[in-house]
Design a protein around this nucleic acid. Sequence first.
DNA 1: TTGCTGACGGAGG
DNA 2: ACCTCCGCCAGCA
Length: 110
Amino acid sequence: MKRSGQFFKDVYEVAKLIPKGRATSYGAIAAYLGSKGSARMVGWAMNNAHAISNVPAHRVVNRNGLLTGKQHFGNGNQMQELLESEGIKVKDNQIQNFDKVFWNPTVELL
DNA sequence: TTGCTGACGGAGG
DNA sequence: ACCTCCGCCAGCA
């Protein structure tokens, strides 16, 4: 078993806890895990998350609500379609009303 | 082994 | 307000 760092593992667990119709940011997850400055690692973990089941990486975007990682979903706008399928409005790779759909693990999971 | 890159974010100019 | 640089740390050449 490739034991990725505990950090990655935690990222996966938090990602799985993101409610349907909600989204969070890389930085928010990193902050929740205690590594505020490691937002990039969260993104990296998401890349690896494709190997894990039930990890809704499409619900994780950058702090602007921009679907920066959509290009990693293989098909063109699959990430956007998944989000819209859950009720999240997306326009031009950006989540609309991001402040409403934003799910802050530091607050929600606390 | 060393160095560069990367699904980000905050600080500085 | 806009643009640029630095830090975070794991993976890969």
